[in-house]
Nucleic acid binder design. Structure first.
Lengths: 317, 317
DNA sequence: TTGTATGCGTTATCAA
DNA sequence: TTGATAACGCATACAA
């Protein structure tokens, strides 16, 4: 595809290239020349060069979206929401594979690539990462952690944790599959405490890393010594891991043990029995993230947006 | 973060900016000035402006990766492979949500954003899309369809289909959940025919669209009138859909009906019983895609790379 | 309303 | 080996 520039257009239309530029950017152009340029632009299939534009304007319409993992329904749903709300930006997805160092790298890319901003799906907001974010002079919006220093969209972990905890309140012996609060404060601390605040009897807590394999493993370990009538996993995928472990141990769900998850993602419907879960509208989270980002471009302020959800009773309790 | 340019570096080092440019690009610089610039660059934390570079060089180190859907383990595994093999490029992921028009849009972005190339996860290679790809003057690599006009990496659907078909060869009544070959020739025709070529008795074929919901629905429809001893779904997710339908119909797997899938993704382990499937190494596909792309940059030719796989016997047959 | 001239940050050409 | 200069494509201040 031959690269046709603004100069070509100007030449063919018999005007100066600044006139074409004005035409393109909605500046003042007479009706006559407008029509003339209209024509030329159309048959030349002209597309402005984004590099030149960005170089000139010192900013780009590309937003860096930093995500910890792509193989998660919650994340991809949020991406879908972002995409749906997106009007005129390019979303550059930067996968960090749950590695904090890669988050640093990704943030560096902002300067290198001249990104117009950052949307960060945060798990572990380390001081270094926070500093790097603050050093940026482009809008930053985060998701997943409720840090008052940033504009953010979060799901209502208090509501969610309480709701699940409430249903399981009278369990006599509960196993909670959580995550290290150092790794994800929002889930490992906020959601966790909302759950435990409702429980009236004894409970044990084990940590996994959001993966199915680890959740399965720690569950098996726990089951080796103890019998639980309830297992609450702080994510659907970890609940699925627990389910597999229970199956291996020949424990019936829900007859012997009830299982709960969080998220309401496809996974909760995929496994059997389906997992009773607190469903978040991650698509809406994505949409709100985009809107919040656009708002930050106009007026930066650490707004907080909370997205609710609903308890979905299925077959696992 | 103050934007520090090559001119600043030059000034501070007391040399011309062209010298700094040479320094940065491995041109000839005397040891003395090299050390001097070394120092300045380091404490200034200088990062070259990607826009200016791309504008000057008329190409960028950003590769557009066009993917039909993000919420698929196969796709994300390939992305992981791409990322892992990636040395010095930026991967711009363009999600098309299985919409052919969006593929067109994505290809247009190549010119607009000045992308250095395209990696396309293809499902439906329409003439329009093929034309658009050929019109590009940057390297193009595709995955998913075996079109001799393009450099491509594909999984061995003949092998896979035959393997599954062979195991199910003597089923008396088989239901195949396929996809419209117009929508995905490789799966809907190649993989499909490899399967049917092995079957010795009767089989019916229904179409779904790779989603769990549709697969479930068409299975339920089929079960309404007929009893099958085998169901072969051309993807794991569709097999999961079939499984749910069977469960609803109180058909036992594998006692009454055997179920097979393709992919070997997490899904086959998530559902119960686990699905016997033909597992592809999608991570390797991703890696090969990147290597093939880099090779295209040097010497364009429609190379074909085939990635094999293995039959994984689980509990569903 | 239009055109001229300049600069964004970088690379490349060509003398010195 | 070095440096002055032009050019990449576009946007804008300013003059006409």
């Amino acid at each position: 595809m031959a690269k046709i520039t603004i100069t070509d257009i100007a030449k063919q239309a018999g005007v100066a290239k600044s006139t074409v530029s004005r035409y393109l950017n909605g500046g003042s152009v007479s009706k006559k020349t407008r029509l003339k340029i209209d024509q030329v632009v159309k048959d030349a299939d002209y597309k402005p060069n984004a590099f030149a534009q960005s170089l000139k304007k010192q900013t780009s319409h590309t937003i860096g979206v930093i995500v910890p993992r792509l193989d998660s329904f919650a994340q991809t749903e949020m991406l879908r929401g972002l995409d749906a709300a997106n009007q005129d930006d390019i979303l550059l997805i930067l996968n960090t594979y749950q590695d904090d160092d890669l988050v640093q790298n990704a943030i560096e890319q902002v300067d290198i690539l001249g990104l117009g901003g950052v949307i960060l799906f945060a798990t572990n907001l380390t001081p270094t990462i926070k500093d790097a974010l603050h050093a940026l002079d482009v809008p930053v919006v985060i998701q997943g952690q409720n840090d008052p220093a940033f504009a953010r969209v979060i799901v209502d972990d208090n509501l969610a944790g309480s709701a699940i905890g409430h249903v399981a309140a009278n369990s006599t012996n509960t196993l909670i599959i959580s995550v290290d609060p150092q790794q994800d404060f929002e889930v490992g601390a906020v959601r966790y405490q909302a759950v435990t605040s409702q429980l009236t009897k004894h409970y044990d807590t084990v940590y996994a890393d959001f993966s199915l394999a680890t959740a399965k493993q720690v569950t098996t370990q726990a089951l080796a010594t103890t019998r639980y009538d309830t297992i609450i996993a702080l994510s659907d995928l970890m609940a699925a891991g627990a389910l597999q472990s229970l199956k291996n141990a020949n424990v019936n769900v829900p007859e012997d043990t009830s299982v709960y998850g969080f998220g309401g993602t496809l996974i909760s419907d995929l496994v059997s029995p389906n997992i009773t879960t607190f469903a978040f509208d991650y698509f809406a989270v994505g949409q709100q993230l985009y809107h919040l980002f656009k708002q930050q471009q106009i007026k930066p302020e650490p707004t907080k947006i909370i997205i609710g959800g609903t308890l979905v009773n299925k077959q696992s309790n």
